[in-house]
Design a protein around this nucleic acid. Structure first.
Ligand SMILES: [Zn+2]
Length: 419
DNA sequence: CGAATTTGACCCGCGC
DNA sequence: GCGCGGGTCAAATTCG
């Protein structure tokens, strides 16, 4: 009984999630195409080459080279102190397990090693780059991974469910109490494939328990079911966007402003993407909430917001780049609504851009796939009872509905941040 | 009975 | 060098 309930609940959250995901994805994709076509393509190409095997249309999605980050809660406040989990007891035995990277992982996994590091499989490889992997040989491949290993994408969404369903299967491998947060953070690992390095951590916001922050890290080394596609591609594209952006502006960006934060808003929805190079590493945060805490935004002086929006601003990339440089000046730049006016000017080619973008997107297999995936998952998942039957209508309305649903869920988009 | 989760121990980088 | 804290491992336990 409960199970049923929970399941239903989960599905619901999933649906709304999917929707938002789609939005983001769309946004990110657009950006991609315009700006970084080159970068990503190259990478993908590379991958394809090497990873000849598998199959499936678009299997790997990478977060892009470099940098990691903690997603955690950007939220301010929550300064509660609490003693650490109280671990820290005397060591026992156990030495055999040396935490080497994946090399080790083979052992650890026991017999299930089938993925040994054949040259081809390299594309995904494990993600641990941390320390000890000094193994000489892997140099190259590893290097690439090493470079890219840290990108993370975190998604903030409202969800009752303990974890948003994204189409992947996850095995929980740990849980910890976060320092300033009463809610524990859970660590999951992808189990859809044996060696899949993808990990994610889930944590609930301290103040607003309804917000769930999910952070994805790594690249799937296996084909994803359509349902999983939406999230995966979204995150990957988001990451790529970030990376390409930062790259374009050069490392300078990162060096320049450790605290720098870039924001892109999707006015049409409440979702927005936040790119941050703050701290040690870059992070992309996709915010699907209505941002109940406008404070958060203000709290970081160095961030600025760019309307992506309804208008599909093509210049985004540039904006980013420049913004990076001028960010301080742009800090005040938020025009969710003014956008229109703003757009107008650059609008010159708007229609052009739009159509182009649309075309590109549509053309993009990933997008279509994702879209299809999302929809199908929504339909399929949402109506376990009736499942097949009338979908035509459903599908059509679904999109719309979802939209509303999501909106209503988070509702109050209308309310503007007073502060 | 195998698979997934729970949960305390362990590893390791970092700041003091 | 020590303690803290984030992350991971793996034995024990629960779930299906
Ligand atoms: Zn995976």
């Amino acid at each position: 009984m409960n199970a049923e309930n929970q399941r239903l609940r989960g599905m619901l959250s999933q649906v709304s999630n999917n929707y938002s995901t789609l939005q983001m994805q769309l946004m990110t994709l657009m950006q991609h195409q315009q700006q970084q076509s080159s970068t990503m393509i190259v990478e993908e190409d590379k991958k394809h080459h090497e990873a000849g095997g598998p199959v499936v249309p678009r299997q790997f999605m990478d977060l892009g080279p470099n940098a990691a980050t903690e997603t955690d809660e950007p939220s301010r406040s929550s300064s509660e102190e609490r003693t650490p989990s109280g671990s820290g007891s005397p060591p026992n035995h156990k030495n055999e397990t040396v935490p080497f990277d994946q090399n080790k992982s083979n052992y650890r996994d026991g017999k299930a090693i089938r993925r040994e590091e054949s040259p081809e499989s390299e594309s995904w490889v494990s993600n641990k780059v941390p320390k000890l992997m000094n193994t000489t040989n892997k140099s190259v491949e590893q290097a690439s991974e090493a470079t890219m290993r840290k990108a993370r994408v975190s998604v903030r969404a409202r969800s009752e469910a303990p974890m948003i369903t994204d189409g992947c299967q996850w095995r929980k491998y740990g849980q910890k109490m976060a320092k300033g947060n009463p809610c524990p953070r859970a660590y999951y690992r992808c189990t859809m494939a044996i060696g899949c390095p993808v990990r994610k951590q889930v944590q609930r916001c301290a103040e607003d328990r309804t917000i769930l922050i999910t952070t994805y890290e790594g690249t799937h080394n296996h084909p994803l079911p359509p349902a999983a596609m939406a999230m995966a591609s979204t995150t990957s594209s988001a990451a790529t966007m970030l990376l390409s952006g930062s790259m374009s502006s050069g490392d300078g960006l990162m060096n320049m402003n450790p605290n720098f934060l870039a924001r892109a808003i999707l006015p049409c929805s409440s979702s927005m993407a936040t790119i941050s190079a703050s701290a040690p590493f870059p992070t992309v945060t996709l915010d699907l909430t209505n941002t109940p805490n406008p404070l958060q935004i203000q709290r970081t002086p160095t961030q600025f917001q760019v309307p992506l929006a309804s208008g599909f601003t093509r210049p985004v990339p540039h904006v980013f780049g420049q913004a990076l440089h001028n960010q301080s000046k742009f800090s005040g730049l938020q025009l969710s609504q003014d956008m229109d006016s703003v757009q107008a000017p650059q609008n010159t080619s708007f229609s052009d851009t739009l159509s182009a973008a649309t075309a590109a997107i549509t053309a993009d297999p990933n997008f279509t796939a994702a879209l299809a995936a999302a929809i199908s998952s929504i339909i399929g998942g949402a109506q376990p009872n009736n499942n097949h039957a009338n979908n035509t209508t459903t599908s059509t309305s679904t999109t719309t509905n979802t939209n509303n649903t999501t909106t209503s869920n988070s509702n109050k988009i209308g309310s503007f941040p007073g502060n």
